[in-house]
Design a protein around this nucleic acid. Structure first.
Lengths: 220, 220
DNA sequence: TTTAATAGTGTAAAAAATACACACTATATT
DNA sequence: AATATAGTGTGTATTTTTTACACTATTAAA
């Protein structure tokens, strides 16, 4: 038996202190004119991983980004053609890296746009549920993934890092406790540099040591 | 685009102090004579959830069991027909409930059999990877799911409960600390009964209070 | 009555998580 | 030069959670 097979992408970013989600405006039925997760049909003989990469590329211009699978969602008889199975993937990208590259590459969608996670429009299909589930997972795995560091420039301040955590968790954190925890984790490298161009005391810069992080993770 | 679509089931049970996995011996190519996870093609116009239920029923005789999705696994060009996408689900069933009901219901498989998790044979396709991933997830979610209680009779002793935990986690636990934790969790109900028919001090019986459990979970 | 087998119990120490407030510093403005 | 502004950076006490560890109690069978 065969089924229609699509990929949907939950693509996060971080801007203006908020977690952002990339959505596309559909130009075809069903759900014409609705906002939806970037997604397409996989092509014949295209491996799932390749399809994901392709769709991410077509929507963001990004390559070589790791996307994590969220799971399969069965089509709720949404198409006259029969069952549609979609596999959802998620990733996190730097806002600046993507900003200028986003443009509609097919006539199936009219535009692509970032939305703050707490100001999403109504979504097509069961996409609201997919986003919900993805966000839940992100909150749980935030401490065990490199995700947050994908959102920051190579050199960043602890305050910036904390803001990302807060945006994802949707709550404020205590500065001292946060720093204690981060220091304890031990995979940030303190740099001999500080912020430039700020009109207040310049903050120390740090960078993420992926090797040390992996060691910690493997030891669990 | 369409793809072949199968469901594979990771079905756990508990017997002789060990976590058990249900496998089927294939009677068709490819991987004829290999052991594999119980699985089939979904039928045309069959919803994914229904397919899962059907396959579980055909292999175990069980109905109305909740199965949790593990994820989609793309076919590694294993069939000449092209891509196969399988969605893996897992569940846990009581050994006694299933023991007698297991029998091959299709000619695609020769027999179904339980294997201790630490004594699995080589598996067909990428099933070893699926099992691996499923087990990992089970270890992580053991404290937040009702899974372990599915493995026990309605009334059980704390030692039995600990044995299930140990079988799943693959390590021994300290008796006093384990009991402290369980008592603390507060969703076990102490019964005014003890074990019968043992030739040593009879242990107190407990039962699982699903309502209290749900309350705790929701409060997180 | 003794033996064999498992049930059942407490406490101290260490580690982790939480709550909480103020002085410091770089810059811009007057 | 003085001052306002805005964000940086830090320590300690308390509570909670986790870990380590060993003996007495109960029952049935011999």
């Amino acid at each position: 038996m065969q089924t229609h097979f699509t990929i949907d992408c939950v693509i996060y970013s971080f801007n203006e202190g908020k977690l952002q989600l990339l959505l596309t405006e559909r130009n075809v039925y069903p759900y014409k004119d609705w906002w939806a997760l970037p997604g397409f049909f996989a092509q014949k003989d295209e491996e799932m991983e390749d399809a994901v990469k392709r769709i991410l590329y077509e929507h963001t211009g990004l390559k070589d980004i790791f996307m994590e699978q969220l799971g399969a969602f069965a089509g709720v008889k949404r198409h006259p053609e029969g069952r549609i199975l979609t596999v959802a993937f998620s990733t996190i990208v730097k806002y600046e890296d993507v900003k200028s590259k986003i443009k509609p590459m097919t006539s199936y969608m009219r535009q692509a746009k970032w939305f703050a996670i707490d100001q999403l429009p109504d979504l097509a299909f069961d996409h609201a549920q997919i986003v919900q589930q993805s966000l839940q997972k992100l909150k749980h795995t935030i401490n065990y993934s490199t995700a947050v560091y994908e959102l920051l420039p190579e050199k960043f301040t602890l305050t910036q890092l904390q803001q990302v955590y807060e945006a994802i968790l949707g709550k404020t954190l205590d500065k001292r406790n946060f720093r204690k925890k981060i220091a304890n984790a031990g995979f940030l490298k303190e740099l001999p540099e500080v912020q430039k161009g700020v009109s207040y005391r310049a903050a120390r810069l740090y960078k993420f040591d992926k090797r040390k992080f992996q060691k910690q993770i493997n030891a669990m």
